[in-house]
Write a protein that binds this DNA or RNA. Structure first.
Length: 401
RNA sequence: GGGGAGUUGCCCGAGCGGCCAAUGGGAGCAGACUGUAAAUCUGCCGGCGGAAGCCUACGUAGGUUCGAAUCCUUCACUCCCCA
């Protein structure tokens, strides 16, 4: 690839590059660039949303540049206010540690582990002296920070802004100084934070990092940004069938966007789907099936993609019920003299949160065995080795111990 | 430091002494329908109980009252204005 081709390749799925010419020059220099990507371990799963940026980092990695991953174990405890209309809950050190382990585990499904430098920003932020910290703080003005929409809006809406939130961007910016980053990647909501890093670096007599931002992936609800706390996410380690099903639930108008951001489908092919959809030459469902299959293939291989598609078609389109169902041992606690206590069973299998909700599920006709709806709230006979179905998509086969 | 407003279920937000487990909206769950887990319509939506009922809940702790989410006091937290 020529340098120009490389740039074009890197520019795919980005929203901002500051500054493009500067980045081109850096690429031309032939230097192995240090590409920074910081993530705060505030949740246990790596979602497809995060994956968009990780995949971009991997692109750089494939071009021979140095991936520098920062796990924000310090900043996670402050809480990034970006795009938030309220203060994040403060996480404990233990929680952050737990999330960090979990996240690191998953990230290397995308990145090449051997070619990634991993840092924890607690390494330098934990031990910073207050005097140094204040000197750092003198480089940033309050007005600059309050320019940010999320702060401005909260101020206007009379919602609280705590001092620690104002400090957040500075800490993240300082990471770039420590890392001597050439380029920082981030989600679209990180523009302010990343630019602050760029500015701060020059104050430390370094060349400022270039900034490259990726679009935020819309969640499965088609409205909000994908996030674990909103529950509209798909985790990259989720089971194929789960992943497939969730992908099928997205609204039609984000199909193309998801193809671009979450799969390895080529730009040319995506373009074909796009025009076909616009001209109504294709059923959106089929485009979505292809999307879902491609998505599963990215994380589980193409064979798993095929299987998940088949499972989906069998289970939901043809309403046949799944072909191979997870087998679950009947818990002894649910057995009664006459058979099985269904309410306890639903509770035991975590299909319901309480006995009351289990009863409600049964009463609303959501529970069936081998296709026969259950109407009796209580004991059921002969349910061993049969398929229990709860709602539209939860199945299991009951096996006696 | 002074003055004012506020804190209700997962979220937003009514209620201002009994009819309040608490209106309404959103989210969620389920049913029907559908190419789809979309849209729409319907039902459910604190816990325990086959039911009667009981328990827990309206920031915290007390108090007034036969009876409080609703009145009084305390404390905590948030916001606004002034200094």
């Amino acid at each position: 690839m020529t340098i120009e081709e490389q740039l074009r390749f890197l520019k795919r799925n980005t929203t901002h590059i500051v500054d493009e010419q500067e980045l081109l020059d850096k690429l031309k220099s032939g230097k192995k660039l240090r590409i920074k990507l910081g993530v705060d371990p505030t949740a246990s799963h790596v979602t497809l949303g995060w994956a968009v940026v990780f995949r971009k980092l991997r692109d750089f990695q494939r071009l021979g540049h140095q991936a520098c991953l920062i796990i924000g174990n310090f900043t996670a405890q402050i809480g990034d206010p970006s795009g938030k209309s309220k203060t994040r809950p403060q996480l404990t050190t233990e929680q952050v540690k737990e999330y960090a382990d979990s996240v690191l585990d998953q990230i290397f499904k995308i990145l090449d582990k051997d070619k990634t430098e991993v840092y924890f920003n607690g390494e330098w932020l934990d031990n910073m002296k207050l005097a140094d910290f204040i000197r750092l703080a003198s480089k940033v003005t309050v007005a600059r920070i309050l320019e940010r929409d999320d702060f401005k809006n909260r101020l206007k809406e009379e919602k609280p802004i705590s001092l620690h939130e104002i400090i957040y961007p500075m800490c993240q910016a300082y990471d770039s100084v420590e890392l001597k980053a050439d380029v920082e990647l981030g989600g679209n909501d990180q523009l302010f934070n990343n630019l602050l890093g760029r500015t701060l670096m020059t104050q430390f007599s370094m060349e400022g990092q270039s900034v490259m931002l990726c679009p935020l992936l819309v969640g499965t609800d088609g409205k909000e940004k994908m996030s674990q706390s909103l529950g509209n996410y798909i985790g990259i380690t989720e089971e194929p069938n789960e992943m497939f099903g969730k992908a099928m639930s997205i609204p039609d108008d984000i199909i193309i966007n998801w193809m671009e951001l979450t799969t390895d489908i080529s730009p040319e092919e995506i373009e074909k789907y796009k025009t076909a959809l616009e001209k109504n030459e294709i059923n959106p469902r089929d485009a979505k099936l292809y999307l879902a299959k491609s998505l599963v293939s990215v994380y589980h291989g193409s064979e798993a993609g095929e299987k998940a598609e088949q499972y989906f078609i069998d289970t939901f389109s043809a309403r046949k019920g799944p072909t191979d169902v997870e087998e679950v041992t009947l818990p002894g606690s649910c057995l009664t003299e006459n058979g099985v206590d269904i309410v306890s069973l639903l509770l035991e299998l975590k299909f319901a949160d309480s006995r009351g909700s289990a009863k409600r599920l049964i009463q609303s006709g959501a529970v069936s065995i081998e296709g026969n709806k259950i109407t009796d709230l209580y004991t059921q006979e002969n349910i061993k080795d049969k398929v229990l179905k709860v709602g539209k998509h939860r199945f299991c086969k009951l096996v006696a111990h």
